[in-house]
Design a binder for these strands. Structure first.
Length: 776
RNA sequence: UCUGGCGUCGUCUAAAGGCAGGACAAGGGACUUUGAAUCCCUGAAUCUAGGUUCGAGUCCUAGCGCCAGAACCA
């Protein structure tokens, strides 16, 4: 906190927990202040919007802290990987606006070094060749609730292991005959530690290295070591790798790799969940393979390629990633947030043009048949404020939108209906005179009369509709996309196939749409069709569009917000309920009174309770931790009342023993004198907590700490100036307090406490503040 | 059941122990030649119960709930 902020109540910009961690590391000089991140996809599928969160995080961090971010392909499974994916991933990352410079890597480039490290592990007795079958390995591993059993091959000699491993590499064995495993702990509660596999035999060509290898390393081994080899400092991954972190550290520690400063550190954050879609590669692959979509770049897919073809911009996606934030909560982000991000961006960059999707003929009866007016219309509305305009031909026969005409208009309808008047966008006001119907009674033509400027003035027209001149319009095809699934979480149900939630209306194709000529003539690729939404030319980024007869094909990126649709549809279709079973936010009332299940205190706790007059809770905490029990006895020996001692031990000291495993830096004597200082009134409880924090750090005598920090401030002559200063610096807060916001008292007290380094007596400060704030 | 992680407006996300804030969504209004955009306003949250503290979303205890983990996948 800077000098400037002292005494002032200001908002500080917040950072996510990863940025905070990095800043701590930089401050402490860990990794010598360097920041090296990496984005490590496996080339076995296309990147999706979830990956973009990770990409923006990793590359963004490198940019912000002057570091670098590597693009590394974690290609350790030759059966799944393919060059097509390597290429698409690079294309997508680049398109998103990130640059890995010369730092393009492949785990497969490290195969030789990884192999050497594996041999090193064997030599140090940390790895062995196991010849159990796949099924046997699974069986020996045990389950979540039962410990595993050691493999009978666990105690092979180093020589035997080395020999076998080399022969594995040489191709002497069939797939599955042997594996190399880390020797850790078959009984570990974290199952990842039950002798995880390091190498397996796979006689399968690798997409880059061909048949050079027939043994391939597994993720837990290859990933951390690749990070280590590249000098990565901060290895960010998603939550599901939390259980793998001990392995990450374990391999790195035994790798023989050296690091400048410190080994890379793995930190996990929540992956992105988006409503109304699926994100797992397996499910996306299924959508593609079973042809529920046209391919990985189908505009309905949440893939980067799909979003690109849909008309999303890199800016919109990066903005979305920023708004979503980074945290550890399992989250499901509302699809509306992504739509908001893309509208926000497109609104600024898209020229407005007119296009009628479902044409209805409109004849202006009092307009000469041969006349053509060249109206001028700006490409952008005034609030966007960009230059540019085009000519818009107007004539007797126009196309208007079918849904802009109603024979019997609902309440609030501002468009055309018999006798009603509307304005034609950028043009004139018309009044509907009559309609022409076909044999079935459908309206096939609307006839209207042009109002003179004076009439138009009088009419007070509320609605404006879009139109195009029939003789000049360009016919085109328009794809309107909607969410791919009908429910927010299509993959939430265990016993329901996510495909059963597919939205049958996710693609609506309109042919014979009528576009104003300038849009086609000037080759616009990303536009707003006024009153419809944002559209882009299909495959504007290369490749041939799925053209119907060589026409222009437009993809709807996102519709405009439509508050009329909301009103007119009204309560007819309620939002489908979220199906997340018993989700995190369900309030669990009634769970309160369930003490029957509460663990009852053990014998030791009961004894403590009886002997020292402690509460059950205090007794439970203190008896559960030997260091606390010992302190309690010693404290009593030093004459501290058991009640006071227990309070300190069960709350403040317990917090410490929870995170500090070893010997405490202080003993009962120091604690006793600290408690004594509070009891005698020398120290407020508030200051005592600060002193305790120091004590825990250094073990220095409390009296000395107090002397160094300065003692408590309770004299009015010392407090009043600070109180007045705080009030003077926050006039707005003072008036808000006086207006009735009494919660602000805490903030004022906090400011005084901060200004005095915690030394003020908060009770006296509160009294003084109340006095001052009551006055005048 | 064990291990690890996580519980803050409907959703996402903030608050060195000191104003529960912001964004999206929702509702209302102003403006409007896009029922758009913009602007303004409103409603809306600390999982529960105890404890420590002048003061708890934050610290301690117990409970409840959700997620991940038993691939020779990553």
């Amino acid at each position: 906190m800077s000098e400037l902020d002292a005494h002032t109540l200001t908002q500080v910009e917040s950072k996510d927990f990863i940025r905070e961690l990095i800043e701590r590391d930089r401050a402490s000089g860990k990794h010598q202040g360097r920041v090296v991140t990496r984005f490590p996809p496996e080339p076995n599928g296309y990147l999706h919007i979830g990956h973009s969160k990770s990409i923006c995080l990793n590359f963004g961090l490198a940019e912000e802290y002057g570091g670098r971010c590597h693009l590394r392909f974690d290609d350790t499974n030759p059966a799944a990987e393919d060059l097509e994916y390597v290429e698409s991933i690079q294309r997508d990352v680049r398109w998103l606006g990130f640059d890995w410079g010369e730092h393009l890597y492949f785990a497969s480039d490290y195969y030789e070094r990884l192999y050497q490290i594996a041999e090193r592990l064997i030599r140090s007795g940390d790895a062995y060749v196991c010849s159990l079958s796949e099924a046997e390995i699974r069986e020996y591993r045990g389950t979540i609730s039962e410990p595993g059993r050691p493999s009978p091959y666990r105690d092979r000699t180093v020589e035997e292991n080395l020999d076998l491993f080399r022969r594995m590499k040489a191709g002497e064995f069939a797939d599955g005959a042997h594996v190399l495993r880390a020797k850790i702990d078959m009984a570990a509660p974290n199952m990842k530690l039950r002798d995880p596999l390091i190498y397996r035999i796979r006689h399968h060509a690798h997409y880059r290295l061909g048949d050079a290898w027939c043994i391939y390393p597994l993720y837990d081994f290859a990933h951390c070591l690749s990070d280590g080899i590249e000098g990565v400092t901060h290895s960010l991954c998603t939550l599901e790798f939390e259980n793998n972190r001990p392995l990450y550290d374990w391999f790195l520690a035994r790798s023989g790799l050296s690091f400048e400063g410190a080994a890379p550190e793995q930190t996990e954050f929540a992956r992105l969940g988006l409503s109304y879609t699926v994100m797992s590669k397996r499910k996306l692959l299924r959508l593609v393979q079973e042809k529920h979509v046209s391919g990985w770049d189908d505009p309905r897919m949440p893939t980067i390629a799909g979003l690109r073809r849909r008309g999303y911009t890199p800016e919109a996606i990066r903005n979305f990633a920023r708004r979503v934030g980074v945290a550890k909560n399992n989250s499901l982000v509302d699809f509306a947030l992504l739509e908001h991000a893309v509208r926000e961006d497109l609104s600024q960059r898209s020229p407005r043009v007119l296009c009628v999707l479902q044409p209805l003929k409109l004849t202006i009866t009092n307009y000469p048949a041969e006349k053509v007016e060249e109206l001028t219309a700006p490409y952008f509305p005034p609030d966007v404020g960009k230059p540019g305009s085009r000519a818009l031909p107007f004539s007797r026969e126009l196309w208007i939108e079918q849904e802009d005409f109603e024979l019997t208009p609902p309440k609030g309808f501002r468009r055309l209906s018999p006798g009603a008047s509307v304005r034609l966008r950028y043009a004139h006001v018309i009044t509907c005179e009559s309609v022409v119907k076909d044999a079935d009674g459908n309206v096939v033509e609307v006839q209207a009369r042009l109002a003179s400027p004076e009439e138009a003035e009088r009419l007070e027209v509320k609605g404006t509709i879009h139109w195009v001149s029939a003789a000049h319009a360009v016919s085109c095809t328009v794809h309107c996309y909607d969410r791919l699934f009908q429910v927010p979480e299509p993959d939430a149900g265990e016993d329901v196939d996510f495909l059963s939630y597919l939205n049958p209306q996710s693609l609506e194709t309109f042919t014979g749409c009528q576009l104003e000529p300038a849009a086609a003539r000037e080759g616009l690729t990303q536009v707003q069709f006024e009153r419809h939404g944002y559209f882009c030319l299909d495959r504007a980024w290369g490749e041939e569009p799925e053209a119907a007869s060589g026409e222009l094909v437009w993809n709807r990126t996102v519709p405009l917000k439509d508050s009329w649709a909301r009103v007119s549809r009204g309560a007819m279709e309620a939002e489908p309920p979220r199906r997340r079973a018993g989700q995190a936010n369900v309030r669990n009332e009634g769970s309160a009174q369930a003490p029957s299940k509460a663990a009852s205190p053990g014998a030791a706790a009961l004894a403590l309770q009886a002997l020292h007059g402690l509460t059950e809770q205090e007794a439970r905490v203190i008896s559960a931790e030997p260091r606390l029990g010992k302190l309690l006895v010693q404290l009593e020996g030093l004459g501290t009342s058991p009640k006071l001692a227990a309070r300190w031990l069960a709350n403040d000291v317990a917090a410490l023993t929870k995170v500090e495993a070893g010997e405490l830096k202080f003993g009962a004597a120091e604690l006793a004198s600290l408690i004594q200082l509070v009891e005698s009134g020398t120290l407020t409880r508030r200051l005592a907590k600060d002193v305790f924090a120091e004590l825990a750090q250094s073990g220095e005598a409390p009296e000395q700490i107090v002397e160094r920090l300065g003692g408590q401030l309770s004299g009015d002559e010392e407090l009043i100036p600070v109180v007045d200063q705080v009030l003077a610096k926050n006039p707005e807060h003072v008036s808000r307090y006086r207006a009735g916001n009494l919660n602000l008292m805490g903030a004022f007290v906090g400011q005084v406490m901060r200004a005095t380094g915690g030394r003020a007596n908060p009770q006296r400060v509160t009294e003084l503040l109340e006095q001052r704030l009551k006055a005048d």
